[in-house]
Each structure stands twice: as structure tokens, then as C-alpha cells.
Write a protein that binds this DNA or RNA. Structure first.
Lengths: 335, 335
DNA sequence: TTGTAAGCGTTATCAG
DNA sequence: CTGATAACGCTTACAA
């Protein structure tokens, strides 16, 4: 260890011939410092390569200038080629950078991981916590909120907790997609629904159900968990149960992708025999065979919006409990 | 703000009827504490819901128990459906969790972002820094190493710095792939190379060049930047310049995916007319049309290996400068 | 084995 | 506008 002693405020103060307090003021941009002294301090900081010790600072300010982003991990999908989580990370990261805060990423898959997250976040080691897409009714967000720690979730928290969240308009997007199928003359429209322990899975199914019901069409439902593998299985099940289906809305692009392949293997042409629409608009969607019509959700923007809300809460502002971003139907060749 | 005063060591000490030092010992697992006292302290900790203040702790220990993972961001590919970066994040995260350290994620795209990273990491706010796939000759890793801050890179650092790194066997993997093409009777084997300011791009091209040269075959090269879009353009260029090519090795699966589509649009059949092999083995590879033969790299393991090396360095151990993980050819239908 | 006490590097509160 | 000085919560010699 080349313990190149880092310069402290003290060192800078000596060099600049002022007190620690003054250096602190300059470093923190206080305006009540004489021009000449400020310059001298700045020079000393520069020459010594002084960088504030954040631990010392946060010990007294009670802030850490860091924010945790908690993601469920067990699901392989977190980092499969689904771009949802990476997109959120990116949006969060952008917004945090603008606010000069650090992103602490926590994957909470295993029970042990979940405990770790709990200990860390309840321990006030971060100024706020962002939850990405929870499964089931996780009590942690509520607990944190009760402790006064700023929290924002992506997706309405299940279990009825009144926590601020940001989400996309699932129902509207799905409804738009299903209506597109109906307008295209489809009458036996099936859906490959997502997991029913996640808001995204639940709401997209609601959107499907409402829309086919409004049109007086039957419900043809199979379930998946957003992954390709599950999508393929669900598609096979649908074909077995309803060989005459003429359209499928899949609650994720990955499932839609697998459905495309399953349909091809079963001898169906897309979209001639069966129209397919997905949800997400991942990059792959434009490259499937045929290119996938899908519902785009502004995922990076979702991450940014979550972060902005969190920072506002941390700053003591009031924010609306729900913040919903629009979705958009991207029409390609599959429907 | 429900400033529910968090209990401090002091509070626990009072409650347990011992000194702060003793509580500290128990909390940190010192063995030199009497059984009975330990239990009493544990109970007090439990009852008060005490969680150590990390800032205070790191102020005295000079450790932060956190590690930074720096990734270039400007490239859209960081969070496109390329699974490289997410995979690394996951591996790093797993290993860090085992070591009970936090992951601080830093995207260093813009010059401003890069500066932020520099300030933060040189400021010793983390116990070590992991660099994921740098572009060009970034001086930062070397600077940090000189400051005595543990550093590990993914991929041999360009510019000749003697820094510890972990990488996969690019050359071996590509060589294996190209030989597979040759064994399949291909003689006009082209490559869509990656960016030449990244080790992965450089080494994969080297692997191609060496192998075709050994076989006395011509070099047919076009460049991309690992993205789908660039892969499509490169494929078109190759077809224009060498309409008689009978195989393509693309330095990334995304580029291979786009090549597949471009070949189809040009009326070529894969693999009948042109065989295609990619690199990465992203999940999508199994779902392309036709399914993509590719070189698999153990990307999560890469993240884990980087982290393990970093932790060893931080613990004062010596580590080998290069740690290379094997790659594997996954044969599907495209070649 | 346990307690005392001295910092760790900042910021914040007062005087001056 | 500037400088002492007291926290902030914890670890760690050193004593007892």
C-alpha cells in the first residue's frame, strides 16, 4: 500500500494560510468568502489535489449523497436481454449524475440478499431508495417510508401501500394493441400474460381483458413469466387449446419472440395466419422474423422519472403518488 | 422527516450496561468478549434496532467497504440487448455480496462523467475500482494504481500499462470458429470486425487474421462497432465488395444478427449460401433465424473473476497480471 | 476481559 | 467575513 496520505482540510488550510472553516466554505461554494482568499484556497486545493473525505462529511451532514437502486435478482430476466432493468439503471444513473449523487446498486434475489438490502437501507446508508419492479407484496418499501427514508417504486406497489411510484400506462398500451388487432379483422385474439405477482403482468392482462370484453370477443389466456422460454410454452399451450386463434398479444417482447418461433414451427405464417404483438419494444423487436409490432414503453425515461421524484421527496417536496408515462404502439410487420 | 433518531453505539452500550468499546467489539465479532456480555449486547442491539453508521466507521477504519464498477456509457451498446455489461454487473454483484461490500456503479460516458469518476475514485471513496471494457487508452486505471488504489480491468488495458486484468480467450475462440468454417468447406470467409479502440475488437480481428492466414485464405474485412446497426452496414459493404463470400465471422452476436437479416434480404440462404458465426452467445442467439452458431464467453464469470482479483489485491495479496477465461464454440444452425 | 480516551476529517455554531 | 471549537459515531491503542 503506497499510503500516499491524502491531504485534508487542515493541510489545505495551512497552505492557504487560513482556517479549516474557511476552506470548508470555499469548497462548499459559500459566497461569504472574500475573492482573494477564495482564490488562494482554490489554488491550495489544486496544488495539493485535495478531495473531500465523504465519510467525514456525511458523518456531520447526515447525508450520504448516494441513492440505492434495488432490483430483484433471482429472476434470470433481470439481466437477460430484456432491456427493462438495464434501461432503468441507465435512466437512474443519468439523473443521479446530474444531481451529483452516487448510485448504489443492490440485487436482492435470495432471502439473504433481501436481508442485506434491508439492513443497508434501513441503516440510512443512502439518502433514498428506488425499487425496480417488485414481486409480490414486499414490505420493505413501506418499512423504509415509515422510517422516513425517501422511497419511489417502479410500478404501483402491490398490497395497497400508499407509496409514490412511477409507471407506464400498461392498460392503455395493451388496449391500443388489442384494438389494432381487432381493426385488422382478428376475432380469436389470445394473450400470453405475464406473471401475476408483478404489476406489469397484472395490468397488461387487465388491458387485454377489458378490450376483448368491450368488443364482445372471447378471452384466450395462457401465462408466462416474461421470459422467452415461458413464452414458447404458453404459445404451444394456446395452440393446443385454441388451434383456430388468429392473433396473440404477448405481455413481453421476449415472450412474443418465442411465440413467433413456435408459430413458425407449427406451420403458421405471421401475420397472415396469426398476428402477433409484443410489449416493451426491445431492440431485438426490430430484428425478429418478421419484425415485431409492439407496445413501446419509455424505459430510460421511467428510470429518470423515478429518480427525479425521489430527489424531490428527499428535498422535502410533496410529489404526486402516481406518475404515469405514456406508451406507444409501434407497428412493424407481425401485426 | 420523521427524524426517528437512530440508536448509536452509545445507546446500545447504555442499554446493555457496558462501554461503547465492548459493543463495538461484539458488533465486529471480536472473540475476546465474555459470553454473557456478548449476549446482553446482542439483545440490546436487537431491541434498539441498532445498525452501525458506516460513515463513522469508515472515517476511522479508512475503508469504505464499497467497490466502484466503471463502465463507459456513451456507447448505446452498454445497455442495448447486448448482455455483456449486465452480465458483468451481475457477476460483480454476486461476488461483492459474498464479501459484504457495496457496488457503486459509475457510467463514464461524457467527459464530465469521466471527470466525476476520476474525482470520486481518486478521492478514495471506494476500496477498489473495476473497469469494464475501456475504449482507447484511458489513463485513469493507471493513475489509480499509482495512487495505491486496487484496480482490475476487464480486458488487457491498451497502452501497455501493467495492470491486472481478466479477460476471455478471444483469439482462441475466434480461431476455433473460423476453423469450424474452414472444416465446413468455406473458403471465402469474411469478418465483421469490432471497434479497433477496444481490446475485444482488436483481439477478435487478430484471431480471424491469424486463422485465415494459416489456412492460406484471403482476408475479407469490414468494421462495425458491435451494434446491430453497424453490423448491417458492414455486411452490405462486404456483399458489395465480395459478392462471392461464403462465410462471415461477426465479432459480436448483435452484428451477426444484423448480418443474418442483411443476407436474407440479399437473397442468400444461411447456411446454404453463406455460413455465419457470431461472438458472445447472447440469449437472442438461440432465437435468430436460423439459430446462430457463436462463440460463448463466460461473461458473468468474468465479472466474478474480476471482483475476486480485486478483493485479493485489496487484501494485500499478489495476483497474476492476466487471468484468462476460456471461450467455447456453440454450434447451432447458421454454420 | 473490559473500560478510557484519543482521534478520524468534516461541518456548523458562535464569537470576534 | 473569518476563526475557534464543538460535535458527528465509531474504532483502537492503552490501561486497568
Amino acid at each position: 500500500m503506497t499510503t500516499a496520505q491524502r491531504p485534508t482540510l487542515e493541510a489545505v488550510a495551512r497552505r492557504a494560510g487560513v482556517s479549516r472553516a474557511t476552506v470548508s466554505r470555499v469548497v462548499n461554494g459559500s459566497t461569504t468568502v472574500a475573492e482573494s482568499i477564495r482564490d488562494a484556497v482554490r489554488r491550495a486545493v489544486e496544488e495539493l489535489g485535495y478531495v473531500p473525505n465523504l465519510a467525514a462529511r456525511s458523518l456531520v451532514t447526515q447525508r450520504t449523497d448516494s441513492v440505492a437502486l434495488v432490483m430483484p435478482e433471482e429472476a434470470t430476466r433481470v439481466f437477460s436481454d430484456d432491456q427493462v432493468f438495464p434501461g432503468i439503471i441507465r435512466g437512474v444513473s443519468q439523473e443521479l449524475e446530474a444531481a451529483d449523487k452516487q448510485l448504489v446498486l443492490m440485487l436482492a434475489g435470495s432471502p439473504a440478499g433481501h436481508q442485506r438490502v434491508e439492513r443497508y437501507t434501513t441503516g440510512r446508508h443512502v439518502d433514498g431508495v428506488l425499487f425496480a419492479s417488485l414481486h409480490g407484496e414486499d414490505p420493505l418499501p413501506g418499512t423504509l417510508a415509515r422510517l422516513g427514508i425517501p422511497v419511489v417504486c417502479s410500478g404501483r406497489p402491490l398490497g395497497g401501500a400508499q407509496l409514490p411510484y412511477v409507471d407506464v400506462d400498461h392498460v392503455g398500451g395493451v388496449s391500443r394493441a388489442v384494438r389494432h388487432l381487432i381493426e385488422g379483422g382478428r376475432r380469436r385474439i389470445a394473450t400470453i400474460a405475464g406473471p401475476q405477482d408483478m404489476v406489469a403482468g397484472i395490468e397488461r392482462l387487465v388491458g387485454y381483458r377489458e378490450t376483448v370484453a368491450d368488443a364482445g370477443l372471447p378471452e384466450l389466456v395462457a401465462f408466462g413469466d416474461f421470459t422467452r422460454e415461458s413464452g414458447g410454452a404458453a404459445m404451444r399451450q394456446l395452440l393446443a387449446e385454441h388451434p383456430d386463434l388468429d392473433a396473440v398479444f404477448a405481455a413481453s417482447d421476449l415472450m412474443a419472440h418465442a411465440a413467433l418461433r413456435t408459430l413458425r414451427e407449427s406451420g403458421r405464417r405471421v401475420p397472415a395466419d396469426v398476428a402477433v404483438i409484443g410489449f416493451d419494444d426491445i431492440e431485438t423487436a426490430a430484428y425478429t422474423e418478421p419484425p415485431l409490432t409492439t407496445v413501446r414503453q419509455p424505459i430510460v425515461e421511467l428510470g429518470r422519472a423515478m429518480t427525479r421524484q425521489l430527489l424531490r421527496i428527499a428535498a422535502g417536496e410533496d410529489v404526486e403518488q402516481a406518475f404515469i408515462l405514456p406508451t406507444e404502439l409501434i407497428v412493424r410487420d407481425s401485426a
